[in-house]
Design a protein around this nucleic acid. Structure first.
Ligand SMILES: [Zn+2]
Ligand SMILES: [Zn+2]
Ligand SMILES: [Zn+2]
Ligand SMILES: [Zn+2]
Lengths: 161, 161
DNA sequence: TGATATATGTCATAGTATAACATATCAACC
DNA sequence: GGTTGATATGTTATACTATGACATATATCA
């Protein structure tokens, strides 16, 4: 799966499609995709960048959907727990998943200049770390892979090869 | 390089050796390995687990080496910046590097039960993510790889293969 | 409808990190 | 040795991130 995030795309339909597919996934699993949760997911989709919990909360507050931190954190916890949103540990921030209904292990490319974040895919189970883990008897359950650098838009053009 | 952290070893000499080699590296690079910085490095070495900045600060305080957060954060920043210590983003905590004078890209195996952390090595430059980055024109400068799971000591023995 | 689980509203507090500025120490040069 | 600029430390204050606790409301299902 190619990363999104550094290329333009049909953003309106991107948002609508993502909301619709998560809506369906929740219905299928008996999860409640409540107004606050849906709105938080939309807020994250609108930017395709990682937002801090308090940035999300500010938006919710301005829309009358909640004013205290737990409101934002609960919605983000729900979305993260079910894989619709990912937390970027490096930034203490959250981003909507690029393909929220597929089972996957996300990896991220984070631009240190413009803060754009692209989600890509890894397979931690076949890298060098997996071999070391197997050798030492460590059982990997999940992995975080976050690469920091310069996105194509922020790189000086003479460096682009 | 094999990970350390899940196996016993000669801890006294491990600490002494690490301090000595960092001391030499600092001297060679014109860096000041001051008492606070050295003590923070030792504190982290003593445990071979990730300590929060405020845990480090508590120890400094009890030894009369500093009582305010910036003291701990500055020492940790120095040590991290020069690669003698790594930050575990997942835990907001810091751990002494397992081989502080070699240039390397660290990866971590974090036990969710006992919080032990083992440092291993990756080569992000040859994984799947590197290919995607190259394709999209993203220039990776550094990468964080943190795997979470159960260490050999915390795994039920009947699961160990 | 009533019982149970799940979600929200709100207040309070814990945990992590940095800005800003004064003082002290170090390093290098005259 | 004293001057000077850079680096490090001490200290106060504050900003940012996250969760505990408990009351109320809403949804789910027998
Ligand atoms: Zn979009
Ligand atoms: Zn950029
Ligand atoms: Zn040791
Ligand atoms: Zn363990």
């Amino acid at each position: 799966m190619a990363p999104i995030g550094f290329a333009s795309h049909d953003h309106n339909s991107c948002i609508a499609d993502a909301v619709k597919s998560v809506d369906a996934a929740c219905a299928a699993s008996g999860l409640q995709f409540t107004p606050v949760r849906k709105r938080v997911f939309e807020i994250l989709l609108e930017e395709h960048r990682a937002l801090g919990a308090y940035e999300v909360l500010d938006r919710l507050r301005s829309e009358g959907l909640g004013s205290q931190p737990p409101v934002a954190y609960r919605a983000l916890d729900f979305l993260t727990k079910h894989g619709f949103v990912h937390k970027i540990e490096r930034l203490n921030a959250f981003i909507a998943c690029a393909h929220p209904t597929e089972k996957h292990t996300p990896a991220f490319l984070i631009c240190r200049k413009c803060s754009a974040v692209a989600e890509a895919e890894t397979d931690i189970a076949q890298g060098r770390l997996a071999g070391i883990a197997a050798d030492t008897g460590f059982a990997i359950e999940r992995a975080i892979l976050e690469a920091e650098g310069l996105c194509p838009n922020c790189r000086p053009s003479d460096e682009k090869a």
